[in-house]
Design a protein around this nucleic acid. Structure first.
Length: 831
RNA sequence: GCCGCGGUGAUGAAAUUGGUAAACAUGCGCGACUCAAAAUCGCGUGGGAGCAAUCCCCUGAGAGUUCGAGUCUCUCUCGCGGCACCA
């Protein structure tokens, strides 16, 4: 074969790999070799098998892991790198509603497409060991984990206001609401009071924050998780409620505050409209009619309207007062929807002088403000202020703060606070809390994970109810608790399973007459929260994964996937791991030791690809036109993995040319081994092995490729390329371009697949430059560059510098004040 | 508003982590081959001055630290991502 025919080559090898099963995971590689070779668990975020097929984002991240998989294997690691499908979910169900095709069928077809596409890109997955979340063999164990959580009290049922998408006709977790809209269909989310199951993720809030510090994850991902969990240190303080009519204490409310040091500045208190105590206070509230109207009005508002209408609303509860425990003062009590029922205690003490929201509310309802914090260290400077200005401004700002004209939300020194005057905020937080008998505590904004979905295509929640309505888990011997097939998909807001005759009969047959089954299915995020525990043992029918295999493979060494999963999938998966550890199913508490995100693949104008914009690039199309190897190389070369990649076909040309050059080098091979340029080529080859190895370890695919380009350019230009160095190049390129390298390897007379070869070792003495360009600077400016031995010392360098014509001219007659010598780099002469 | 990330040629980017800014690639220009075109190969390609050797300026703006700053510090600015009435 003379020409590089990528089509032929790629098809040929894809078929041979398939036939020989070189990517198959044998029982051996699961267990036996693990003790000899170090393990490496490499994980992709598995795809949802959508009807659109693989997209370019998948192409990028799966290429990166495929490169690493091949590289690590060549380096002698026993690598676990499997693929699966997150195959439960709404699109297949919605498609079924439209067309009547069962989701099972749609899913099967889509998975086939995905697998075909992944193979066409040359990915070395063993698809016989794929994990499919919608298969009974898999959701068996999703359900089993649920039952274990149930036994351990980590899951519970409650009727609560939850996020509800009226278009998808299902409840949503807090994490699945974006901007008040459904994460999937973007329609507005409303609040609905319905029963549902919850995972106690909040039990792990503290751990979920603390354990992040030992993980090799991108900083911003950690920060986002910490933010999402939203820890606040503060105090709970009780306020007595006084009835003016009865002139006596009728109840108490507890407020949560992060600023107990401002307690003396409280001028009113606020309850969330949903606060339970309101009902209890009803008889003492003189303006109940108006209050009730307000409550009704807020109930009708969606969460979004409440947030959007930033204008504060509320109503005072006439006839009752709250008593500030610090100074026994009576302050008015309000209901206002800027206070959220589900955070803290659903009640706050308002300090308008030191809290922006309270300030705004107080302005609107003309309530008084008391300044209790003196900003001792607050300069109040604005950028560009001169110092004099600043002092003036500080004075003015201070006055304004003290008169309550502006809010001051930072720490300071206490004033107007009785015996606490003069204390710092920090000290006062503790002292005042103690003084009023409050309790120092922490609150989190994280809410328990609502997992009930009123839809069909998901894992059935394995719960049955006795005739009296008591919930029991489906016993192990009846798992998997199969998803019935005799259902109508049309969503009505109650789960389609309710109409299944088969499920009804099955339940009664097993548990007895009058028993009913839970009809909701689980959030698909539950399924995707543990799949990485299944990969080591995908066909185990007795356990979710054997103890030995868990021990051998987990935790995951490197996880690569999109950043959009920061606080959904990644948080849930961490929670599931911790919960499973707590009940003794696992002996590690973090699933993913190292995490990296790939960027987005954008169109040539840098615009996000979307169907509606019609700018979607299809992997099939580009693989057809450029070949898998060129596509793989381009997408790795275009920039750092974590940056966005612009898909520019002009750019792919460069990589095709590169492969063409690599191909043509086979015809330049010198018969005579001892050519004069031999050493030159050999040296740069070894330098390249070193650099490419380091770059691949650090996921710097782009610079690894450019180094190989440099090597190829030298091999092409200098005569005397020998087969030894050419082989080294092919080996290095093998993880990135598996097809062309396999073909060349074969042409060069090797019988075994290049992908079973060892990664080449470099010779340190060859990889090292012996001559370098040494820079001579005068006063920090480059004035000459000379070629010298790498290990040149200062004296020699100075000697050479003084001999340089350029330098001589410039230093003539000047006094050299000093010279800075940097080994192997430069000499800087200061005159 | 808060948190995080970023701004380098025409373009994608690189820069040994404080040491020659722009490697590698695309594009563009000129040339070779060709009847011609494509492909391929060669040379050039940050801006400015000069016939030239060479010199000056240049990493969003401004300051600072340093012999030396794309890299560190501060201020500002623009862009992106996330959170957002969480007390």
């Amino acid at each position: 074969m003379k020409n590089y025919d990528y089509k032929k080559i790629e098809q040929k090898w894809q078929k041979r790999w398939e036939d020989s099963g070189i990517y198959k995971i044998s029982e051996n590689s699961f267990v036996g070799l693990g003790y000899v070779r170090p393990k490496y668990y490499l994980l992709d975020m598995f795809p949802y098998p959508s009807g659109d097929g693989l997209h370019m984002g998948h192409t990028e991240s799966y290429t990166s892991t495929d490169v690493l998989y091949r590289y690590k294997k060549m380096k002698g690691f026993n690598v676990l790198h499997l693929q699966g499908f997150d195959s439960f979910g709404l699109p297949a169900e919605n498609y079924a509603i439209k067309t009547g095709v069962h989701p099972k069928e749609t899913t099967r077809k889509n998975m086939e497409t995905y697998i075909r596409q992944m193979k066409s890109l040359g990915f070395g997955y063993d698809f016989e060991n794929k994990v499919v979340t919608s298969s009974p063999e898999y959701y068996h164990w999703t359900q089993w984990i649920f039952t274990k959580f149930f036994e351990a009290g980590l899951v519970y049922k409650k009727t609560d206001r939850i996020n509800w998408c009226d278009s998808c006709k299902t409840g949503l977790a807090n994490e699945q609401v974006e901007d008040g809209r459904c994460e999937r269909c973007k329609s507005e989310v409303i609040q609905k009071n319905i029963p549902g199951w919850f995972f106690k993720i909040t039990d792990f809030s503290e751990e979920l924050i603390n354990d992040l510090k030992d993980l090799d994850w991108p900083e911003h991902t950690k920060k986002n998780q910490i933010n999402w969990i939203g820890k606040s240190d503060g105090a709970e303080i009780k306020f007595k409620i006084l009835s003016l009519r009865l002139k006596s204490e009728i109840s108490k409310i507890e407020v949560f505050t992060t600023r107990p040091d401002t307690l003396f500045g409280v001028t009113y208190c606020v309850l969330a409209p949903e606060h339970k105590i309101i009902e209890e206070l009803k008889d003492s509230i003189e303006n109940w009619k108006e209050v009730n109207e307000y409550l009704e009005k807020t109930k009708r508002k969606s969460e979004m309207e409440r947030i959007e209408g930033k204008e504060k609303t509320g109503i005072e509860l006439k006839g009752i007062k709250a008593i500030n425990p610090a100074n026994k003062e009576e302050v008015p009590l309000f209901i206002a929807d800027y206070v959220l029922a589900h955070y803290g205690t659903g009640a706050i003490m308002a300090v308008p002088a030191h809290d922006e929201r309270d300030f705004e509310f107080a302005e609107k309802f003309t309530l008084s403000k008391i300044c209790v914090i003196n900003p001792h260290s607050y300069m109040g400077t604005l950028p560009g202020d001169s110092l004099l200005d600043a002092t003036e401004k500080t004075k003015k700002n201070l006055e304004k703060i003290q008169k309550g004209e502006v809010v001051y939300v930072y720490d300071g020194v206490l004033i107007n606070s009785g015996k606490f005057d003069g204390m710092s905020s920090d000290e006062a937080k503790k002292a005042i809390t103690e003084f009023v008998g409050g309790k120092i505590t922490k609150k989190y904004r994280l809410r328990d994970w609502s997992i009930s979905r009123q839809r069909y295509w998901g894992a059935p929640i394995p719960i049955v109810y006795s005739p009296s309505g008591e919930a029991y888990t489906v016993p192990k011997e009846h798992l998997p608790w199969l998803l019935p097939e005799d259902v109508d998909f049309i969503p009505t807001g109650t789960s389609p399973l309710i109409k299944s005759k088969e499920l009804k009969e099955r339940t009664e047959k097993i548990f007895g007459k009058g028993w009913t089954s839970e009809v909701d299915t689980m959030d698909t995020f539950v399924c995707s929260s543990w799949y990485y525990l299944r990969y080591p043992d995908p066909k185990n029918e007795k356990e979710f994964c054997s103890k030995e295999k868990l021990k051998q493979w987990l935790p995951v060494d490197l996880y690569i996937g999109g950043a959009e999963h920061t606080y959904m999938h990644l948080l849930y998966a961490r929670f599931i791991t911790k919960a499973m550890k707590k009940i003794g199913l696992l002996d590690f508490s973090e699933p993913f030791l190292k995490l990296r995100h790939q960027g987005m693949v954008l169109d040539k104008d840098g615009v996000k690809m979307s169907k509606s914009k019609g700018n979607v690039v299809n992997p099939d199309d580009v693989v057809g036109r450029f070949g898998a190897d060129a596509v793989r190389l381009y997408i790795m070369f275009a920039g750092p993995l974590e940056d966005d990649v612009i898909w520019n076909e002009n750019g792919v040309v460069g990589l095709s040319r590169f492969l063409e050059k690599v191909w043509k080098l086979q015809f330049l091979l010198s018969i005579d081994i001892k050519e004069p340029n031999d050493l030159k080529i050999e040296k740069i080859t070894h330098k390249t092995i070193k650099k490419v190895g380091e770059d691949l370890e650090n996921l710097k695919f782009n610079t690894a490729i450019s180094q190989m380009m440099i090597l190829v350019n030298v091999m092409e230009k200098e005569s005397g390329l020998n087969i030894k160095n050419y082989k080294l190049l092919i080996l290095m390129l093998a993880p990135l371009a598996p097809h062309i390298t396999e073909e060349l390897w074969d042409i060069l007379g090797n019988n075994q697949s290049i992908h079973l070869s060892e990664w080449p070792k470099y010779d340190e003495s060859l990889a090292k430059d012996d001559k370098i360009n040494f820079v001579i600077q005068i006063n920090g400016k480059v004035r000459d560059v000379i070629e010298v031995d790498v290990d040149i010392n200062e004296n020699k360098a100075r000697g050479l510098a003084e001999k340089s014509e350029n330098i001589k001219k410039l230093i003539e007659g000047k006094e050299i004040k000093k010279a800075i010598f940097v080994r192997g780099r430069l000499l800087n002469i200061i005159i």
